[in-house]
């Protein structure tokens, strides 16, 4: 490939970095709070809730994300043509437009959020359960309410403990966004593949790889900084 061609391809791929980053940020935005909720549900003392949550986590972590993306993307079109559904469900499904890009993004995002929430939930749960019982007791004995105890005493300590594991997940997510190309979500890997065929050259793949590499590095640096910031206590 000539220098000009490489530049052209780079610019095209740069453009498709936007949908990649969009998927990345929205996944984090929704899966982190959802993961927190899932973690609390799994620790729920009412056993059926805890079991159901656990089944959800097992499925999400035990099956490939790619399969989940395909399943969710095609689930709604399939449900739409199925006959014996309750009326209210049919009404909801009829209201969903399955043609546009917006639908594709939402379907892919849903799969990512559900999947990553399960991983984050396990990280959060591990973090919460690693806080010694004495912290709760000291806090309770000093008259803090349950909510104050959670937000002022427990959560700050949990955050410090889960930063390393969360950082791992975030870096994996950078690269996992490429899985969305399986349903033709127009992101950087899909485009790189097309450019590869146009030019009969592997160079576009290398360029895409470089993009992922840079984003992963940036994330690693950001998290290392956060870890350092939180290192003021042990």
């Amino acid at each position: 490939m000539s220098g000009k061609e490489i530049l052209d391809v780079t610019l095209i791929l740069l453009e498709y970095l936007v949908p990649t980053l969009k998927l990345f940020f929205f996944t984090l935005l929704f899966s982190i709070p959802l993961g927190m909720v899932v973690a609390l549900l799994k620790m729920c003392k009412f056993k059926p809730v805890s079991w159901l949550t656990n089944i959800y986590i097992l499925i999400m972590r035990g099956t490939p994300l790619m399969l989940q993306i395909i399943a969710i993307y095609y689930a709604i079109p399939y449900l739409k043509i199925s006959e014996n559904l309750p009326v209210f469900l049919k009404n909801i499904l009829d209201g969903i437009d399955i043609q546009g890009d917006a639908f594709m993004f939402r379907a892919v995002l849903t799969a990512f959020v559900l999947n990553y929430a399960a991983y984050f939930a396990e990280i959060f749960r591990g973090g919460i359960e690693s806080i010694p019982k004495g912290q709760y007791e000291a806090s309770e004995a000093l008259g803090f309410t349950k909510i104050q105890t959670f937000f002022h005493i427990i959560l700050p300590q949990v955050i410090k403990r889960i930063v390393p594991a969360s950082s791992n997940e975030v870096v994996i997510l950078v690269k996992d966004t490429s899985l969305a190309n399986i349903v033709a979500y127009a992101e950087i890997t899909l485009k790189a593949k097309q450019q590869m065929q146009i030019y009969s050259s592997l160079t576009p793949l290398f360029i895409a790889g470089a993009f992922y590499f840079v984003i992963s590095m940036v994330m690693t640096v950001v998290f290392t900084f956060i870890e350092k910031k939180l290192n003021y206590y042990r």
Binding site: A138, A141, G143
Partner: peptide
Amino acid sequence: IRLKVGLVFQNFNLFPH
């Protein structure tokens, strides 16, 4: 009542953060 009593633990249980 809780505010009338204080408790000092064997292993301190200070808040590390």
